[in-house]
Design a protein around this nucleic acid. Structure first.
Lengths: 186, 186, 186, 186
DNA sequence: GATGAATGAGCTTTCATTCAT
DNA sequence: CATGAATGAAAGCTCATTCAT
């Protein structure tokens, strides 16, 4: 059991590293086998297919983000509007650090992997709802009806900034953006 | 000349359709040949490589967005803050309609295609600068120093919303979001 | 007629240059078309196939060598043994300058092109016989019976030196070799 | 291990046969797969590329010749000038039997395969030096200074004769040639 | 549990050749 | 005479997957 889990963990960890570097399509089972020192045959003992590995990685990845999002939402409770925004922005770094794999998995999900697509759909829906509910509880009375739109906006901003930061088109002034968001907010 | 351009156009149009449906990596030259009723050999008569086709498609695509962005920026001049935002939001629909291919091309660009990556980098930089300059000219004196941050934010919002709309996790309330943005703005 | 010949000449000359640089297999009709500014279609107006072009080039090439060999043989008459050898060696330079194409054509001939193979067979036979006859007329009485063997040897030496000079494994001391051959001879 | 080596050996042996018959460029991986009853995929399990296979074959081939040359050189020590030459000539038969593949590999080496070219360059250099050193030790005092030139000549003669024998332009009188060489020598 | 060996379908690319105009 | 356009066969190569041991 234990060794079993250790091996699976090794496969997942290694594959995450590879996918983060090369993308899903460019990471072959041969790559994974080589980098884990596990034979391709054994890979198939633990996982039924490459898609299976990717799916588990998506699980791991989505759970990491999920925790970050929920933690963020949880902290929102009892804070002022101002802090709310900065909290979200602080967590961009967490999400951004896993940004490449996030993008790669989404591309894979959109393109051809229905299971993956459903995994992502559900999580995005859940995140937005959690965010929205938290906003409802915390926004001042006059802004409560905006909670829905704001939840969409915040998620968009995070995803969009991640995309720009991966493209490396320009250095992104996260601090300024965060400050600006807070300013606008009030 | 004429037939020449017609065939090239047919190749590009068909490939755009296929890529929009399947993504870059999952669209093979055999696919393109089959759907154009053109032999693989002829494909290579018009384009030196698959990357060449993709690159031209990226050009076409980026120019479409570019026009939308510049048109939007141009219209900003002489409008109030309020209209500015709604203008940007209106154009989301244009951009969103080509959103899938946008995502696919970006994934390809990030993963392994350096030329593509540079095509995108340059355009993103140019867009943001155009947006920023337009904002500087139009924002009220007290908000001028936020132009830079806001330009990043607006681009992020568009990209992020495109991503959510492709994932189809939920119906996105574009109207509400637009209204909210405008409200926040003032 | 004249223009016809000019075009054919252009094709042959250009192809010789290309083959000398890249070898037969690596010179495509597209290469030839590009370098002559003649369309591939027109190439086929003048020559029935790529093999046809190669065959004509072999003719041109073999005739050049043929002249050199016959000139050499002709000069042998009425010279001493010593001069005979130096004459052959002098012509190595001529032959060596076309050495690359000679090797490439021979490889092509051996590998798969029967016409080419026959072209070469005949010429080699003719050369050796001409050389042998010339040797018989000029060698001293006691060495006349060696004419046959010597003719094979001289041709081998030329071909072998050409091969080594193309491989560029080492700088070949042609002068020393020539001197040595003359010394041995007497 | 054992099966592993067997399969590699089968691939090499089969490819040598095919190349000897058809040349390097005309021997496709499909040919090799068909003649070994091995799938193309398996070919790539054992060798990273076609060049890899060719390179190993060149190694095998060059080692065979190398042994013949070194054996020949070794036997020269302590023999008279006369025997020296006949020894070299005796070994022509060994070399000639692998002559076709020798020519094909050299053509490939010259044309476009730099690794192959270097393999050949080094071996030719080594052979000539070994031959030269052996000649220095065995030639009479008055001929020692010719060792360098003679080493080039002997190698040329072997290569040249191989070429003629492959072209099959005429039956080559090896015995006469050998005798003639010995006569000239003394 | 674990693996090395084998596979076949599919990929991008090249190229001599054909032909209507 | 001349050409641009089109083709199809074949090339080298990749890779997820299977399976006997």
């Amino acid at each position: 059991m234990k060794s079993n889990n250790n091996t699976k963990q090794l496969i997942i960890d290694t594959t995450i590293k590879l996918i983060t570097k090369q993308g899903v399509k460019n990471t072959s089972l041969a790559d994974i086998a080589r980098n884990t020192n596990i034979s391709k045959g054994t890979l198939y003992y633990y996982y039924a297919s490459k898609d299976d590995i990717i799916s588990e990685i998506a699980d791991v990845h989505l759970n990491i983000i999920n925790e970050a999002v929920l933690m963020c939402v949880k902290n929102i409770n009892g804070t002022s509007d101002l802090d709310l925004v900065s909290l979200v922005m602080d967590n961009i770094s967490t999400i951004s650090s896993t940004g490449r794999i996030h993008m790669y998995l989404i591309c894979e999900a959109i393109t051809e992997n229905e299971n993956l697509r459903n995994q992502f759909k559900e999580k995005y829906r859940a995140w937005r709802l959690a965010l929205k509910n938290s906003l409802i509880e915390n926004l001042s009375e006059e802004h409560k009806d905006r909670a829905d739109a704001i939840s969409f906006l915040l998620i968009s901003i995070v995803d969009g900034l991640v995309m720009q930061s991966i493209l490396k088109s320009e250095e992104i002034p996260f601090a300024d953006i965060s400050k600006c968001l807070v300013d606008i907010w009030n």
